[in-house]
Design a protein around this nucleic acid. Structure first.
Length: 459
RNA sequence: GGCGCGGUGGCAGAGUGGUUAUGCAGCGGACUGCAACUCCGUUAACGCCGGUUCGAUUCCGACCCGCGCCUCCA
């Protein structure tokens, strides 16, 4: 079964085929680093990580770039408010972002380019655009001229003539057309800035991606991804800039957009203030739970994200790891080969992760009730499918016993309590034994008695 | 005003023109000193109204409701 991807450009599912059969290029818009990221920022990172993993099984080389925007007016604002140098802020939050993404089991992208490392590349593009008449200089700004680009609006299906209707566009006096957007803007003496032929200034929002895509991946790439909210204006503008300096060749053949994460039925966003930070959630839940929860919904649609979703995700993982724990001594040979099965096919069908997850459960359950070669085969299948999704990759023992930040009781304390209970049980003192178990349960520890001994897990 | 998405059982969430996933939660039973784990069984849904059809949750049309983009935003 071929990989099928829903392409925003054509509003259809299409068979995926890369420009070069041996190398796939993918670029995903990362965060602006001025504070901690919320779970909505984590969604594209997880989704495209799954795609990255899937592509790696299909093609010999996959170049995946996920950028970090480290120059932006919001960062400048944060720098003023905190009275800290801008680089201190961007360094801190880049590091935390990468840390958060790592704890969600995301693989490290091939490239993690930063905007400020690409100023000269941006200026080159701007120079090109001005030279070829797609951009103009006005009152210290360099602006892209929407009217000069006949294909403008195609990606987001918006006619530039209709942009006026909402009357929500910043109609600045230096713009020839309200839809024109800034490529380069002047910086005050206190603002960060770089010298240019248009004076000391800094880049507009969209130009960085055009520059980084071109430098690391090429003129036209295979897949460009990001959140739904980036479709317009960000991706439309990126695409316009790149197309215009490349004789009409597109920035990307496939455009993918993930839906939002909602909280109480409303879009989670920093401007609304209704967000859950990944870092905060990680104090209560293992990263794998966040990842599982993200994968329970299809990426194109919006997803509700409350604690009940996380609790359910955790219980589901408990069940899967429980099966794996029971099958721990079944040896399987690790192989990168991924054979076709319903779960893999689900992923190949525009990343139907909810369906793939249901397969995980089906396989795990069947594995549990099988024996011999069948069981071995099913475990192999389970492990390779889950690896494609970045799940179930730790030892069951670690899953059940590793402490997360908010848990206080130590493994030693648990073991001691279990020993005490064992003595009580041996003496027939079930009252004491039950008190100990209840006390442990209050600390989030569940005991499981078997014939031989007592094992435990954190709830 | 323009463009777009969605409404499925208690919750989450796939999918399909007829046999109605899956997970979590619930319920009944087995196992257990009691539990937990596991096993067996089980309840329960397709916003509303028309149309097409032998048959629609699935296709078509209208309607209602919710959400998003058009300004920074994953």
């Amino acid at each position: 079964m071929p990989l099928v991807i829903y392409n925003t450009l054509t509003r259809r599912k299409e068979d995926f085929s890369p420009i070069c059969s041996t190398r796939v290029t993918m670029y995903v818009c990362g965060p602006t680093v001025y504070n901690r990221v919320h779970i909505g920022n984590a969604r594209p990172a997880v989704i495209f990580d799954v795609l990255f993993r899937v592509l790696q099984t299909l093609y010999p080389r996959v170049d995946y770039a996920r950028n970090i925007t480290d120059i932006d007016d919001k960062i400048i604002k944060a720098s003023r408010e905190l009275n800290q140098d801008i680089s201190v802020i961007t360094e801190r939050y880049s590091r935390l972002y990468i840390q958060d993404m790592d704890s969600l089991n995301n693989l490290t992208p091939t490239f993690s380019p930063r905007a400020t490392d690409h100023i000269s590349e941006m200026l080159d593009i701007i120079t090109d655009l001005v030279k070829s008449g797609f951009a103009y200089f006005s009152d210290g700004h360099v602006l892209f001229s929407v009217a000069a680009d006949s294909n403008y609006g195609k990606l987001s299906q918006r006619l530039s003539s209709e942009l006026m209707a909402g009357a929500r566009i910043d109609v600045a006096s230096y713009k020839q057309n309200p839809g024109d957007f800034v490529l380069w803007k002047p910086s005050g003496p206190a603002d960060p800035g770089w010298p240019s032929r248009w004076g000391r200034g800094r880049p507009g929002w969209h130009i960085e991606c055009s520059a980084m895509v071109k430098k690391h991946l090429g003129e036209t790439i295979d897949i460009h991804g990001g959140g739904q909210d980036l479709l317009f204006p960000h991706h439309e503008n990126e695409n316009a800039q790149s197309r215009c300096i490349h004789n009409g060749r597109p920035l990307s053949n496939f455009w993918m957009h993930n839906g939002f994460v909602n909280l109480d039925g409303e879009k989670m966003s920093k401007s609304l203030g209704n967000f859950r930070l990944v870092g905060d959630l990680l104090k209560k839940y293992p990263g794998e739970v966040l990842r599982y929860a993200i994968l329970t919904a299809h990426y194109r649609f919006e997803q509700n994200f409350g604690f009940s979703v996380l609790d359910a995700a955790k219980n589901s993982l408990n069940s899967l790891y429980g099966y794996l724990r029971a099958a721990e001594n079944i040896k399987i040979s690790h192989s990168d080969e991924v054979s076709s099965c319903r779960g893999v096919d689900a992923l190949l069908d525009d990343l139907n992760t909810p369906l793939a997850l249901s397969e995980l459960h089906r396989i795990a359950k069947e594995m549990h009730t099988s024996r011999g070669t069948k069981q071995k085969r099913l475990k192999t299948q389970l492990m390779s499918l889950s690896r494609l999704m970045g799940l179930l990759q730790q030892k069951p023992e670690a899953w059940f016993k590793n402490k997360i930040e908010n848990q206080v009781i130590t493994n030693d304390q648990i073991e001691d309590a279990i020993n005490a209970r064992k003595e009580a049980k041996f003496a027939g003192d079930y009252v004491t034994a039950d008190i100990i178990r209840k006390r442990l349960e209050k600390s989030g520890v569940v005991l499981e008695d078997s014939r031989k001994d007592t094992t435990w897990r954190r709830r």
